[in-house]
Write a protein that binds this DNA or RNA. Structure first.
Lengths: 338, 338
DNA sequence: TTGTACGCGTTATCAC
DNA sequence: GTGATAACGCGTACAA
């Protein structure tokens, strides 16, 4: 019991367990895979004991090599700093777990280069499926980066393809509805505040929805790479001032919660939060804003449900091995105005 | 060029490439591993072309089985909803990438059961290393869940062990310093607001630091599992009222930014933000609070640096194969009061 | 410079 | 019921 030093460097294998149990490795393998009907109670018990004693765990890599199955699903998030991303992962994760699958999270860090290396790794490893919120907003390009056999669901982006099933928010419709709501409240003017719109389908759709109601809406694009600029604050204040002179009621429409939070102090310190001629709305997924602006209507997506939905479709695909169940290629999870 | 249907089901292998290039698979393998000095320029070129044409990528699983190396590092976060967690992952990720390693994120979702299954999977797969922010706050228990050979760094928790290197914040010291600062400003009373303290080393340390200055400090523990209760709001307001009667200046010390954000509306709507007899401080990592409370001093950790530091140590360990470089077992990344 | 042959730890197909 | 043994796809001595 004391001379197990030199050998134990490497983890114990199935063969070693077989030797100790006095059976062949085939039997151990059967045991591990629950084929207990194909062996005597005694051997099963014997094996169980040995495994307990040795603390043996099967090497997943070898198994994968042999079966081409891993029970692993790669989830690629655009940026885990966003609540949306972490939350849809949690949704996917919980559903996958119920189906005996494990979700593994990759963060693209808002960086296309990183997304690329992530996909490269995912292609090399044995993943049974992929759920991705892509940075690349272009079907042919992305298609080239994902190996053909990998079951894939696209999340939160519209790539205009029938190749992959997509789970997304009704970005355009809900934006339109929200804009219409505020227009009815006599907010004649609308200022949209967003990160760079071009090239990101979600933002494009949101802006399009708004512009279908406010064709003239002004767009303020925030450059994320630079420190948050005072000049943006000034822009907002100037707009408010001008609109007051013109006696316009103005709506500030933030395409992302983080931006609202960044501007919140400005609105707060200039007493704009409860001003009757200023309204604020935003795509806002967390509960932070609710407390800050209890009276304002916000757009709530359901990232958890989106992830769960994507995971459900994927799980089904994997179970029914290929045969596509869903005829619908585009699942829309509606965001609500609250 | 048109009859490649039936075979191409499974991805192309090294053997196939070898056949096409008219060499042995060993040569392909050498090519893949950059041992170009051991082959003629011509064969190398020939191989390169075939690989380009076929789009061949080596099967990482097979490689891992053969080498026991994956270049993969598992990072386990307590909960990716926390900015701290995602941020330390980003720090670790960037450093690992520089060292040719890839970080893969697991989310324990504030759930010990989930942490357990995460660790089980990590033990089975071939990971070269592990960086974990554990939920389990107990060395022997955690020790039993991580296979011996796996190089491990503990992040953000103090397990009081010399087995693993730890990277943590100076929780107690900075809390003490902060408390002392406010005591000097004549804030005689201190109310601490936290999630359940017992069993989480970070919170225990922070509270200890505060109590070394304010032995009598009152603790309000928030039950995260229940919806945020009005009664907590009332508690705070009652305290303020009572302290005003007693003419005490009171400090509210939030052990987590999220809690401050949850209470922020209460303070805001009761005009407590700029009241001279009320101060607010918190462990606050994001920039949200800066804008909301520009005048208040907050404690800033450096999760990115912590992750980067952990990754650096791990990378070195992996390079120098075992031989422990660091004599220090406990690296402390100081949080600052700003 | 290149090929042969075996090992990595499992699964699965045969036999017995 | 159980045991050989051939895959799985790649790396690597050892030969040649």
């Amino acid at each position: 019991m004391a001379k197990e030093k030199s050998k134990t460097e490497h983890a114990i294998t199935i063969k070693e367990v077989a030797r100790l149990a006095g059976v062949s490795s085939a039997t151990i393998s059967r045991y591990l895979n629950g084929k207990m009907n194909r062996m005597s109670k005694e051997t099963a018990d014997k094996i169980e004991k040995i495994i307990q004693d040795t603390g043996f765990v099967a090497n997943a890599t070898a198994r994968q090599l042999s079966t081409h199955i891993s029970q692993l699903v790669a989830v690629v998030a655009a940026d885990i700093d966003d609540y949306f991303s972490t939350e849809f992962f949690k949704g996917a994760s919980s559903v996958l777990e119920q189906n005996g699958l494990t979700a593994i999270l990759f963060d693209s860090n808002s960086d296309k280069q990183r997304e690329l290396t992530n996909l490269k790794i995912i292609n090399h490893q044995v993943f049974d499926g992929l759920i991705i919120q892509p940075l690349i907003n272009n079907y042919p390009e992305l298609r080239g980066l994902i190996r053909k056999e990998l079951r894939t669901i696209i999340l939160d982006r519209d790539l205009h393809t029938n190749d992959w099933i997509t789970v997304e928010t009704n970005n355009k419709a809900v934006s339109q509805k929200t804009a219409a709501y505020f227009l009815r409240q006599r907010f004649i003017k609308c200022v949209v505040i967003s990160e760079a719109v071009a090239g990101t389908s979600t933002r494009e759709d949101r802006l399009a929805g708004i512009r279908s109601i406010y064709p003239e809406s002004q767009l303020i694009e925030i450059d994320n790479s630079r420190p948050f600029m005072k000049e943006n604050e000034k822009k907002v204040l100037d707009i408010v001032k001008a609109d007051r002179v013109a006696k316009h009621k103005t709506l500030f429409f933030f395409l992302k919660e983080r931006l609202l939070l960044a501007f919140f102090p400005t609105f707060l310190h200039h007493n704009l939060l409860s001003a009757p001629d200023v309204a604020i709305t935003a795509f806002s997924d967390t509960t932070i804003v609710e407390g800050l602006l209890p009276a304002s209507k916000m757009i709530k997506q359901n990232p958890f449900l989106m992830g769960a939905t994507a995971a459900e479709i994927l799980s089904n695909q994997l179970k029914n091995n290929a045969t596509e169940f869903n005829t619908k290629k585009n699942i829309v999870i509606s965001a609500k105005l609250r």
